[in-house]
Nucleic acid binder design. Structure first.
Lengths: 172, 172
DNA sequence: CCAACCATGTAAGCTGTTACATGATTGA
DNA sequence: TCAATCATGTAACAGCTTACATGGTTGG
């Protein structure tokens, strides 16, 4: 199961969709980091179908709409519950977060773990910049590391803000 | 030529290195987003060698060190001069920037383009959040887009700061 | 009527991942 | 001496990209 497969599964969980509709999502929304080319979407959908995670209902002459199956839903919620780790691409973790809708507890836990990973990365980058190999790099290389530092700091701040926002959500 | 191939080429340009030394760079520095597994490094090095962009000098019994060739240097500087575009993965653009050492003019141009792309992305994300599809998303999905917004804003600020820093560099 | 878009698929090729495999050297 | 690290490679497999291919529908 690739990230693309889970992205498709999540979109189909939200509502049944055709392959073309899924491609449009990747073309017109910030989920655009994912493929959208027919050569990636249709084979991925076929895999999901073969694995029994989605089922196609034909809707019209040459159209078919996919819906998630009970097994697919189970696989999806298991994936959603996956812990955030430092090794994982943050964008994939974020993909999980975007699909976490009902469970507020899980969302809050996610944000805490996400922030912890971000802080770990910040420490590592600062450590590298202060160390001998870091100090002796050309300025541009140091600035590139600074970029990673700044964006990771922004990610940590985002997590903290999102945590507050989610916590307050239903209070007043 | 994949990003990995250019990363290898750049590291070898800076100083001749063995395959193992290159792997260590990916394992121990913030360049860790790239492979480091033997199954990716050694085939990539072989490709570069076949293309005549690097040449191996045997150094010891079962060691070999790679150095960049004139053709390799030409290919590399051509790649370095590639303009920053919105479609490109910013991390790949950043990889180019990290290897831009001598040319201060090119570095400043890069940062301007980079900032322009970031601002474009910011506008797009804000537009999406304000639009109907954006407003009707679940809160977590909106927050995920906010993450992209915050980190992109941080990237834009970084570019502006780096520009100033590079400009001042040799002034006082 | 023609262009643009809807809608789905296949095939070649390249890359990277994982796992396996080998053997030398160094330090405890 | 034994483990860790140095050092290099191969092979199977899965995935994505690009390009090709087809045909229906809608709007100007």
């Amino acid at each position: 199961m690739t990230p693309l497969a889970f992205a498709l599964l999540g979109l189909i969980r939200d509502e049944p969709r055709s392959g073309y509709a899924l491609r449009k999502v990747f073309e017109t929304t910030p989920m655009g980091n994912y493929s959208s080319s027919p050569g990636s979407i249709y084979p991925a959908l076929k895999n999901l179908q073969t694995a029994g995670l989605i089922a196609s209902q034909s809707a019209g002459p040459r159209k078919s709409v996919f819906a998630i199956t009970p097994g697919g839903l189970e696989a999806f919620v298991t994936w959603l519950a996956q812990p955030v780790t430092a090794k994982e691409d943050p964008n994939i973790a974020l993909l999980r977060f975007a699909f976490l809708q009902d469970d507020r507890r899980q969302s809050l836990d996610f944000l805490l773990s996400f922030a912890r990973c971000a802080h770990g990365k910040i420490v590592a980058l600062k450590g590298f910049l202060g160390s001998e190999p870091g100090r002796s790099m050309p300025l541009q290389a140091q600035l590139a590391v600074q970029h990673g530092l700044r964006t990771t700091e922004a990610a940590a701040e985002w997590a903290a803000d999102a945590y507050r926002q989610l916590k307050e959500e239903t209070k007043p």
